[in-house]
């Protein structure tokens, strides 16, 4: 599990906790829990929501660690609170859903949940917590209560075993680029590198398009 605390963001949103889990066995259950939490009212609802206050990302749609980090950074940057308020300015409910939306190539929230969020078939899951500084141990304890899976290093994202390129190409519309590059005679590794670059650039400019 990795945690970043950035001195250049307001304290309410300056910390990123990241945990990559593989061989996740209880995705359908987590998803049900998320839906329940969003429906519940009153104090009970608040408590349920607090327990699952994370972004649950489908890790097979993440092509590198950089992909994830750049998406997070630019989400935070574009959600900076206005001077007279302390809560992030987002177009969705909270920073976590904003991250999902930012990862998506278009501005459709349902699409972003479907493509980048947890599904019943998710086996590799990236759990993100954006917020104020706190000990990683506490965050991990919360994650552990929700997700059944094996915690692995984020380096696994860069090793290219997790990404489902077929789906990535489709969602980010990279088939044309793929064909162009292969025609040019680039080997598989190079093609992947270029596609990673293209994805990162298009994410980084998401909030100005």
């Amino acid at each position: 599990m990795e945690s970043y605390t950035m001195p250049n963001f307001p304290e309410s949103m300056n910390t990123i906790h990241l945990a990559l889990l593989r061989n996740v066995t209880n995705s359908p259950k987590i998803r049900r829990r998320l839906i329940e939490a969003s429906k519940a009212m009153g104090e009970v609802g608040d408590k349920l929501r607090e327990e699952v206050d994370f972004a649950f990302l489908e890790a097979s749609m993440l092509v590198s660690r950089q992909h994830l980090l750049i998406a997070i950074l630019n989400t935070l940057l574009s959600s900076l609170p206005s001077p007279d308020s302390s809560s992030p300015r987002t177009s969705t409910h909270n920073l976590h859903s904003e991250l999902l939306l930012h990862l998506s190539p278009n501005n459709n929230i349902t699409d972003s949940l479907r493509h980048h969020g947890l599904s019943d078939h998710t086996t590799s899951l990236l759990v993100v917590r954006l917020g104020s500084p706190g000990p990683s141990k506490e965050i991990w304890n919360k994650i552990e209560h929700v997700v059944r899976g094996q915690l692995v290093s984020l380096d696994e994202l860069d090793r290219g075993e997790i990404a489902d390129w077929h789906r990535v190409d489709k969602v980010y519309k990279l088939k044309e680029l793929d064909t162009t590059l292969r025609k040019r005679g680039l080997d598989h590794g190079e093609v992947i590198e270029k596609k990673r670059g293209a994805i990162i650039s298009s994410l980084a400019i998401k909030h100005i398009t």
């Binding site: 750049i70 950074l73 630019n74 940057l77 990279l174 680029l177 162009t180 590059l181 040019r184 270029k194 670059g197 293209a198 990162i200 650039s201 298009s202 980084a204 400019i205 909030h207 100005i208």
Partner: peptide
């Protein structure tokens, strides 16, 4: 970004 998507070699955009 347009260049990157079309396979022209340019630096990645990381922070806007």
């Amino acid at each position: 970004t347009r260049c990157a998507k079309a396979g022209v070699n340019v630096p990645q955009v990381l922070w806007v």
